[in-house]
């Protein structure tokens, strides 16, 4: 079928075409000359470049904005309370007649809670990752990877809800304590919540280990399992370290789920069954009704949390850079 629109001229022999060529070139060149000139296009090009530059710098702006806001609003209370009293004070009684603003309980709770989550979550996540990366059939691997993605996607309030209704009563019954809402409950919830980050990142790191390393080990008579743990895992150690650090970041930053299961009383974390308050939940539990110095102290807590996170970010970056090399 011939499409008329693309046949302005009959399909003729080359001679005719050649004769037409010169006149056509002239016509086309004329058309190019008539086409809008590029003076303003250069200007527009420069404008567009600037617009994209600004878009690119948005993230930098946001980080600066967040840092500046947190520092500006976090410093006054620390100054008023005194950095030592604030950071190392063992008592938080913000609404008492003579308010006390010591956040050591929150800091320690966050550290213990995160450490506990790591102690439980990392071995499970790590072993799962090795299995998925090295031993699982492709089908099992893909099903499990979707399961892990699902685990990552479940909202933290849902974890909190299930924790409230399953874990908290469970702890009360099993350990025979008056209230199950405790550091232990928070640790278990956090351990589950950091699992997906650890598994995903470790699998990626383990998958990237060159097959030649493993072949060399196998050829020396090592069993596959020995090879995976003694060759592949050390080769992927930076990536696995990064996965652990990522888990630390997730655990220390989690607020809602912890708020629902940890009991939320500003106690020192003396035992696993103590009802405790984390740095994150310290901010969120009083923010709604706070004012004055109390509110400023909450901002200071956020600043402390932010500093922890920046430290963890720097570590994460360090390990990721190492892995790239």
């Amino acid at each position: 079928m011939k499409k008329q629109e693309y046949h302005p001229f009959e399909d003729n022999a080359g001679e005719f075409q050649d004769k037409l060529f010169e006149t056509r070139i002239e016509a086309v060149n004329l058309a190019y000359k008539k086409a809008p000139k590029s003076e303003w296009a250069k200007y527009a090009e420069r404008m567009i470049h600037i617009i994209f530059l600004l878009l690119g710098l948005i993230t930098v702006g946001c980080v600066l904005l967040i840092t500046v806001y947190l520092v500006i609003s976090g410093i006054p209370a620390i100054r008023e309370i005194g950095p030592v009293d604030f950071l190392f004070g063992r008592e938080w009684a913000s609404t008492a007649a003579e308010p006390r603003y010591g956040i050591l309980p929150f800091i320690l709770t966050s550290i213990y809670g995160t450490a506990g989550a790591i102690v439980i979550g990392v071995p499970v996540g790590f072993m799962t990752a090795v299995y998925l990366s090295k031993l699982a059939s492709p089908k099992v691997k893909s099903v499990m990877q979707s399961a892990v993605s699902l685990l990552a996607g479940i909202p933290s309030v849902v974890y909190g809800l299930v924790g409230m209704l399953v874990l908290v009563p469970g702890i009360r019954k099993v350990f025979n304590v008056p209230d199950g809402a405790s550091l232990l409950a928070a640790i278990i919830v956090l351990a589950i919540m950091i699992l997906p980050s650890i598994i995903k990142m470790s699998v990626t790191a383990l998958d990237a280990v060159p097959k030649e390393y493993e072949d060399a080990s196998l050829a020396l008579g090592a069993t596959p399992i020995e090879t995976y743990f003694k060759v592949s895992v050390p080769a992927a150690k930076s990536g696995i370290a990064a996965a652990v650090v990522l888990g630390v970041g997730r655990a220390i930053g989690e607020a809602m789920a912890v708020m629902m299961v940890a009991g939320n009383v500003p106690n020192m974390p003396d035992s696993l069954f103590q009802s405790v308050r984390f740095l994150t939940t310290a901010v969120s539990s009083e923010m709604a009704y706070s004012s004055g110095l109390q509110q400023q102290a909450l901002f200071s807590i956020a600043l402390v949390l932010f500093l922890f996170i920046m430290l963890i970010n720097a570590m994460l970056n360090f390990f990721l850079k190492q892995e790239k090399e």
């Binding site: 607020a255 923010m287 970010n313």
Partner: peptide, 28 residues
């Protein structure tokens, strides 16, 4: 250099916990 600064900023943003976003969002 500009690229690595922007990428570092993006990584930092993705590491900041949501409670801090909530606080800064409230202030901002």
């Amino acid at each position: 250099k500009v690229v690595s600064i922007i990428e570092y900023a993006a990584e930092t943003l993705s590491g900041i916990p949501s409670i801090i976003y909530g606080l800064v969002g409230m202030l901002l």
